[in-house]
Computed example of a mutant assay.
Amino acid sequence: MKLLTFEEQGIHKLGVQTAQGIVDVAASAEKVGNTTIQTDIMAVISATAAEVAELQAFITTVLADGQAVCVDADEITWGPAVTKPHKIICVGLNYRRHADETKAPYPEVPILFNKFDNTLTGHNSEIEIPKMTEELDYEVELGIVIGKKAKYVTQEDALDHVFGYCAVNDLSARDLQMRTQQWLLGKTCDKFSPVGPYLVTADEIDNPNDLSLKTYVNGDLRQNSNTSDMIFSCAEIVSYISDYMTLEPGDLILTGTPEGVVLGLPREQRVYIQPGDIVTVEIEKLGTLTNRFVAEN
């Protein structure tokens, strides 16, 4: 399934993208009198396999019966595909060619840092460029969303704990990021983690380490790579993190960005994100996530 959220009266409602359009799950359930179906995306993420299957069956039934309440993708306010993660954990320098372009050695173990939920936003959201930075960079990243509690899981079992995958733009204010040895300041400004448009369930992704990734700035292709270039695979990352902390349903892991970021260019060629720029990141099978950037008021 392709799950999503959209905002209505300050609430993130659950939607499911189908060939017939986006189904408003709560409105459809109310219409047919179903009081048991999950209508919150975080509840679905932590649900049992049987409950997720029940949601899929419900969507199939209301579409077939003509009882589905659908919303227009061009008229909704998209929310983040994950609304309330317990943790947002990021992996730095996890693509070989990205490490090469920044002249950094390949890490021997995953480099971890964190973001917070103030960074979350959705597809088509306007993002203010903070006054404190002059070097805002884009980073297309594959997001892993945990579905089952994981502690000391092996690499062989790690992906069994994944609910699904999503596209993320790990926005990075490079001047703030490099101000100190800790990267946090440059990574955690408001709306610095657009997530979406969809959270795609793991059953639709045969191999998360064989997906193309791209970034466009105003239509110009800037990043063009594949998750096969990861230094540490998705399974390795989940297993490694679980050795040090318990991963909970809804936790979001950002797995690193490939080559093509502004920081990787010679200094005289670097043109960072400017007000009016439209940045689109897309990942094969996961959808296209677009945001417009504006000056901070």
Score class of each variant (00 low, 15 high):
residue 90 C to H: 08
residue 17 Q to T: 07
residue 255 T to V: 07
residue 1 M to P: 04
residue 248 E to N: 14
residue 16 V to P: 04
residue 24 D to G: 05
residue 183 W to Q: 08
residue 68 A to C: 12
residue 46 S to R: 15
residue 139 E to R: 08
residue 232 F to V: 00
residue 270 R to G: 04
residue 111 I to K: 10
residue 90 C to D: 09
residue 150 A to I: 08
residue 30 E to S: 07
residue 184 L to E: 15
residue 129 I to D: 10
residue 167 A to Y: 02
residue 52 V to W: 13
residue 203 D to Y: 02
residue 87 K to P: 03
residue 79 G to W: 06
residue 161 H to E: 10
residue 179 R to D: 12
residue 291 N to G: 04
residue 8 E to S: 13
residue 96 R to M: 09
residue 143 G to Q: 01
residue 18 T to W: 05
residue 67 Q to L: 12
residue 91 V to H: 04
residue 261 V to L: 11
residue 62 V to M: 07
residue 115 K to W: 10
residue 28 S to Q: 06
residue 245 M to S: 13
residue 54 E to D: 15
residue 25 V to H: 02
residue 199 L to M: 01
residue 204 E to I: 00
residue 203 D to T: 04
residue 194 P to A: 13
residue 251 D to H: 06
residue 70 C to F: 12
residue 275 P to E: 03
residue 31 K to Y: 03
residue 78 W to I: 05
residue 97 R to M: 13
residue 113 F to P: 06
residue 160 D to G: 14
residue 102 T to E: 12
residue 253 I to V: 12
residue 239 S to R: 02
residue 111 I to E: 10
residue 29 A to T: 02
residue 50 A to C: 07
residue 48 T to H: 14
residue 261 V to W: 00
residue 129 I to C: 09
residue 71 V to T: 12
residue 258 P to R: 10
residue 167 A to P: 10
residue 121 T to Q: 04
residue 45 I to C: 13
residue 42 M to A: 11
residue 150 A to E: 01
residue 249 P to Y: 05
residue 170 D to H: 07
residue 115 K to Y: 05
residue 98 H to D: 09
residue 138 Y to L: 05
residue 205 I to S: 01
residue 198 Y to P: 03
residue 140 V to C: 12
residue 9 Q to D: 15
residue 104 A to I: 11
residue 60 T to F: 07
residue 69 V to K: 14
residue 102 T to W: 02
residue 289 L to I: 05
residue 123 H to D: 15
residue 266 P to A: 02
residue 242 S to C: 00
residue 11 I to D: 13
residue 13 K to W: 05
residue 157 D to R: 09
residue 23 V to H: 04
residue 109 V to Y: 14
residue 9 Q to T: 12
residue 116 F to S: 14
residue 203 D to C: 03
residue 4 L to W: 01
residue 255 T to G: 06
residue 152 Y to W: 08
residue 78 W to G: 06
residue 268 E to K: 11
residue 294 V to Q: 11
residue 171 L to T: 12
residue 29 A to G: 02
residue 162 V to Q: 12
residue 15 G to N: 09
residue 34 N to D: 15
residue 32 V to W: 01
residue 257 T to K: 03
residue 217 V to I: 15
residue 127 I to G: 11
residue 58 F to T: 12
residue 207 N to A: 07
residue 59 I to N: 08
residue 216 Y to G: 03
residue 285 K to A: 13
residue 189 C to E: 13
residue 258 P to A: 08
residue 11 I to S: 13
residue 118 N to F: 00
residue 175 D to N: 14
residue 219 G to F: 02
residue 142 L to F: 05
residue 120 L to D: 08
residue 238 V to R: 11
residue 283 I to G: 08
residue 80 P to L: 06
residue 251 D to P: 09
residue 196 G to H: 11
